[in-house]
Design a protein around this nucleic acid. Structure first.
Length: 834
RNA sequence: GGGCGGAUAGCUCAGCCGGUUAGAGCAUCGGCUUUACAAGCCGGGGGUCACAGGUUCGAAUCCUGUUCCGCCUACCA
């Protein structure tokens, strides 16, 4: 026997059991040592398939099987593409700047940003970031994620800071970014401004208060509001222009209760005649609609809430109270004056900060905005230039864009993030930006290249202390990966090679953020979409269909499942969800996965332990062997399955591909083909020698190729079998670098399916008879009697009588009218004789 | 309020651009152990395809409406 290597397993003593714990560790090390997944930047012979891997928050020790599920689903496709010959650019990123990390550190150390210095806080964040990266790396490796870890980035590292800052400068120079003083969304808990995408709507139960106001003509007016605490900030009352009840108020003013402030009466179409009394108060600012009216109708400004979420001096005696306390106190005071005419409990929708659940407020502050409202059309059309898997997810992207109401506020009043490359003249306020060559800079530490204000020549310059929204950096991942911020030749070559990226895999809940912002950036910076394909995974749910989370206690940790059942088995579970569909975690499915592994192991063992020393699978082409009908059948079925698998992988429908491969493997290859041919190996007779050789070659061909189809899903066991056995006859150093099986038309024998159908019907009937007779399936019998009502079958049955004998373990096949057990083909009857 | 996805066997899900008797895995029941695999094999039972209409020779599949679950989105203060 020719062997390529000596350190592999002795075939005759091939292990009976598959020891996945040892094997997965060993294989993982093998991949790392041999750089199996390394991207080759100088290889021009292959096409590139580049992946914009989701960088998870390292700060969260929240990893559950659902995360492994979504990474695996993308990875099935990536491994397939690798086998199709693509040069795979598959980096691993870690998103560790910004609020998510800060929140994590605050909770872990029970601190908040007001109780610690900026430096100490950043140190803690960096420390946790390092720990988090190691945890992630080790999990992804044990799960078999085939990223090239040499391409890793962390969104707080120098390259990412430089890229985010260059993005800022580029947009600033293009006039797409500007500093504006206007009402912004504010989280009183995190003490920072937010963007629309950081706010989610939650239902709260509240009370709708009917409060009595007085018009300047002395008439009482009832106004309904859920936020009486904002009364001091009331700057106008509004009615619908169509509401005749309030036409009399035109030109009048209205006096607010408690504050006795005169505010104008205004009319706007947006007021619902049927809500409350049809008249509403507008404060600066209770909600988005207040902001709009304030802007459009140039209303007064009266801000009663400060950055801590407490009422300020403008609220009078309520100064210093929290929103909640103030609401209570105001309601009491109004009640004392009998000005509350009704209270109705209601459920209403309130915008809250998605990181902490605190209701957002509106405050006035100077912030940096990226203009996005002007270019909605461009972003929608970019969406149409990408292929969405599944397609219906595109609707969410479009819906989000259509509903955008704010430009993207990227200023955050936090510590741990990428700084703005900006200083201000303390005299005239002029903005001084860093030079591109200096990036990354920290304006708090570094000085600008100019030493005085270019506009007023003032010498005092103060740094911007806000940091950028974390999405300002993560939206750059396609450009971070492509070295867009660097001008050297090699970087430019890489950019041309991998950008736009081939694939963006991600979860559905960050369509509005990561996906949308990435498109914005790429369109603005490169006038191109950031990627060609978008793959949106569903969620891994618990067994009751609820989203997994630590706090709910329905959390299944991937490490436990991997050590109990193997990573391959966990990935098998992940493959069960159609793309974009949620999947309940089911330990039973993981068990099924493990069963598949064991079956694959044993089927391979059957081949391996029967291999004679002189075996050479490539002595002859498969189509040149003397094939029986049953061999032709298994080859035909394999080629058909292969075609289906390939088509499904091409359209990112991995789930159906694995199902097709498994069905073929169980039903065709193991349960029938192997069962039919196996007794060739029980008989050492001379006459079997050629037959043995043929079936070994067929088995080698089919088992190797089906193993390749399985490889993207269950990379460990397929690699182990490849290296320990097939590698003796194959050239590639890894099954994952080997070629995806090529469809071979010459192995489709169209007759064989019908002809073998006769054999399979006979076999099935024989199995039923044996069950009825309590007869072991392998127990040899002397005769099988066959009767056929179709004369055309006689020649066929004669031709395949060898296979029939082998299949039903009979010494002889005899035509006889005594056969009386009807097979699934009603033209064929059989009987067995012991 | 608008939109999307889902509802198929006891459970988890395929099938859905119309076409024999609706499938798989798990669970369940019966049987089978020297000869790859008992973490196995063989066989059986189990479904008015959410509901109501419609189109059609023919509907789980297409159309309309309804109900329930999940998600996205939304200013009813």
């Amino acid at each position: 026997m020719q062997k390529n290597s000596d350190n592999f397993i002795d075939f005759k003593n091939f292990p009976k059991n598959y020891d996945y714990q040892t094997v997965e560790k060993k294989i993982s090390q093998y991949w790392e040592d041999n750089k199996i997944y390394k991207f080759e930047p100088h290889d021009k012979s292959r096409n590139v398939y580049s992946v914009d891997t989701p960088p998870p928050y390292v700060s969260s020790s929240h990893l559950h099987v659902g995360h492994v599920m979504s990474y695996s689903q993308a990875e099935f496709i990536i491994r397939y593409k690798r086998m199709k010959g693509f040069n795979i650019f598959y980096p691993m990123g870690f998103d560790d700047n910004g609020l998510p990390t800060e929140r994590y550190v605050e909770r872990k150390y029970k601190i908040n940003k007001s109780k610690i210095t900026r430096e100490d806080f950043i140190d803690l964040c960096l420390k946790e970031t390092k720990i988090g990266i190691e945890v992630y790396k080790s999990l992804w490796k044990s799960a078999g994620i085939s990223a090239d870890y040499g391409l890793s980035y962390s969104t707080i590292d120098e390259r990412c800071r430089k890229t985010a800052q260059k993005s800022f400068l580029d947009l600033y120079n293009k006039g797409l970014i500007e500093r504006r003083n206007e009402p912004i969304l504010w989280c009183p808990q995190c003490r920072t401004s937010l963007a629309q995408a950081d706010v989610v709507i939650e239902e709260f139960s509240g009370v709708l208060y009917d409060i009595e106001f007085k018009s300047s003509s002395g008439k009482n007016l009832i106004i309904s509001t859920t936020r009486p605490e904002l009364l001091g900030g009331c700057v106008a009352v509004y009615a619908s222009p169509a509401d005749e009840r309030y036409h009399f108020l035109e030109g009048q003013s209205v006096k607010t209760p408690l504050y006795n402030k005169d505010v104008p009466v205004k009319y706007d179409e947006s007021v619902d005649i049927n809500y409350g009394t049809g008249i509403m108060m507008v404060c600066t600012w209770g909600d988005v609609e207040d902001v709009r009216k304030w802007k459009e109708h140039k209303l007064d400004t009266a801000i009663v809430i400060n950055k801590a979420g407490k009422l300020n001096e403008l609220s009078g005696k309520y100064n210093g109270l929290s929103v909640k306390e103030a609401k209570k106190a105001l309601v009491e005071d109004l009640n004392k004056l009998s000005l509350i005419k009704g209270e109705k409990p209601l459920i209403h929708n309130v915008g809250v900060h998605d990181r902490c659940g605190t209701p957002v407020e509106f405050i006035l502050a100077e912030q940096w905005f990226i203009k996005i409202l002007d270019n909605k059309d461009k972003f929608i059309s970019a969406g149409n230039q990408m292929t969405w898997h599944p397609e219906f997810m595109k609707a969410r992207y479009e819906e989000w864009i259509n509903n955008l109401k704010w430009d993207w506020n990227i200023s955050r009043q936090r510590f741990y993030g990428v700084p703005f490359p900006v200083w201000y003249c303390s005299e005239c306020g002029e903005v001084i930006t860093a030079a591109e060559t200096e990036l990354p800079v920290d304006p708090v530490v570094n000085l600008p290249t100019v030493n005085k204000c270019p506009k007023c020549r003032g010498k005092g310059l103060r740094p911007e202390t806000d940091v950028m929204d974390t999405w300002m950096t993560s939206s750059m991942t396609p450009l971070i990966n492509s070295q867009w911020a660097y001008d050297d030749v090699e970087s430019k070559e890489l950019l041309n090679m991998i950008y736009p990226m081939g694939l963006r895999p991600q979860a559905q809940e960050i369509i509005r953020t990561w996906l949308f912002y990435s498109v914005v950036k790429s369109i603005y910076h490169t006038e191109s979409v950031p990627f060609k394909n978008v793959m949106i995974s569903g969620w891994g749910l618990d067994k009751n269909g609820k989203k997994m989370s630590k706090s709910l206690g329905n959390f299944v940790g991937p490490e436990d499942i991997i050590s109990k059942y193997s990573a391959d088995a966990l990935r098998y579970w992940a493959s069960k969800a159609n793309l974009g569909q949620d999947l309940r975690f089911s330990e039973e499915d993981v068990v099924s996965g493990r069963k598949l592994l064991i079956k694959i192991w044993n089927a391979a063992r059957f081949l391996i332990t029967n291999i004679p020393p002189e075996f050479n699978p490539y002595e002859k082409k498969i189509s040149g062997l003397k094939l029986n009908q049953i061999d032709k059948w298994v080859l035909t079925e394999f080629e058909n399955a292969l075609k289906i698998c390939e088509n499904n992988m091409e359209s990112y429908e991995y789930s159906f591909s694995l199902k097709t491969a498994s069905d073929f493997f169980y039903n065709v290859y193991c349960d029938n083909y192997l069962e039919i041919i196996k007794n060739v190996f029980w008989d050492e007779g001379e006459e079997n020698t050629d037959r043995k050789k043929t079936v070994l070659n067929v088995m080698y061909f089919v088992s190797l190729n089906i193993l390749k189809v399985f490889a993207p899903f269950i990379p460990f066991i397929t690699e182990e079998l490849y290296l320990s056995f097939y590698k003796n006859f194959e050239k590639d150093n890894s099954i994952h670098l080997s070629n995806w099986p090529e469809f071979k038309k010459e192995l489709i024998f169209s007759d064989s399916v019908n002809i073998s159908g006769i054999l399979l019907n006979i076999l099935e009937a024989s199995r039923k008879l044996r069950t009825n007779l309590n007869l072991h399936q392998n127990h040899k019998i002397s005769k099988i009697l066959i009767k056929t009502l179709n004369p055309g079958y006689i020649d066929i049955i004669n031709e395949i009588s060898g296979d029939i004998k082998s299949a039903v373990r009979a010494e002889r096949v005899v035509f006889s009218d005594k056969a009386d057990f009807k097979t699934a083909d009603e033209n064929i009857f059989i009987s067995l004789e012991k």
